[in-house]
Design a protein around this nucleic acid. Structure first.
Lengths: 143, 143
DNA sequence: ATTGAAAGGGTTCAATC
DNA sequence: GATTGAACCCTTTCAAT
């Protein structure tokens, strides 16, 4: 990965539909070269996927919360992991250091759905010692 | 937005380079109709942008942390906001409810860069009462 | 919303440097 | 690795239904 690759990545991050011929005009490199570099960036796993960023409000996700979760040490964590990862409400799930074990980023249509999520998805058959929910009031930056 | 739009969004989210003619074969709708629906989804702000998801490791971001920040009530928050939003290390910045005021998601090359980030970007000339850093050990899901 | 056709443009390949 | 030129394919657009 050289400086040219980084330029290409920057352009694609801003707009993944930018064509190789468009990029060619921007960075003065031939179209086949650019196409090949993009192929390699994909093959090497630098580019995970081409995707679209959806507007949460337009998608009806008006309530975004972070939930910290502490698991019972004796719990079989893989069942918890499976249930969480499969939930369509869970945008992110990280294993964390510190006071808690996991940090979830959760999207809900509205706040009234939170209780159901915590009761039925989060605490259903998982030995959760405690959890702590942080509400997002507004978002200044989100890549 | 009807069910067909949702199908199109699902396909584009998985791969934003899927062409209208490819989608046409998947959902049995004519190419011009699909092209027009995508245009409208963009125009209406449902699709924020076409982008690529980059692999953090490949990009040399080996250290991801969440940092909670509490500001001095008298502080001029807009200066803090500007500095944070402009930092290339800050992936996300949310205004939150609860014990702290802001939650940042920060990407660093390695843990040794954290001190510099906290000292020079976070606490430089901003009246920060306290902060709390949570380290990501591993990520199970990240949309 | 669909169909069909025309036009324009992007991608890819092979050969070359 | 990068470039060029040509062939092919696809996308877009328009008009008519």
């Amino acid at each position: 990965m050289d400086e040219i690759d980084l330029q290409i990545l920057r352009i694609l991050k801003a707009n993944s539909r930018t064509t190789s011929s468009d990029i060619s005009k921007m960075i003065h490199l031939s179209v086949p070269s650019i196409a090949e570099r993009i192929r390699k960036l994909e093959k090497n796993g630098v580019i995970d996927q081409f995707t679209v960023k959806l507007n949460r409000r337009a998608m009806g996700q008006h309530c975004i919360v972070y939930i910290f979760v502490q698991l019972d040490g004796s719990a079989e964590t893989h069942k918890f992991r499976e249930a969480i990862v499969q939930s369509e409400h869970v945008l992110e799930c990280h294993h964390t250091s510190g006071e808690y074990d996991y940090l979830l980023k959760v999207a809900l249509a509205e706040i009234s759905e939170l209780e159901g999520f915590i009761m039925h998805t989060l605490k259903a058959n998982h030995n959760i010692v405690r959890s702590n929910t942080v509400f997002i009031l507004s978002t200044l930056k989100e890549e």
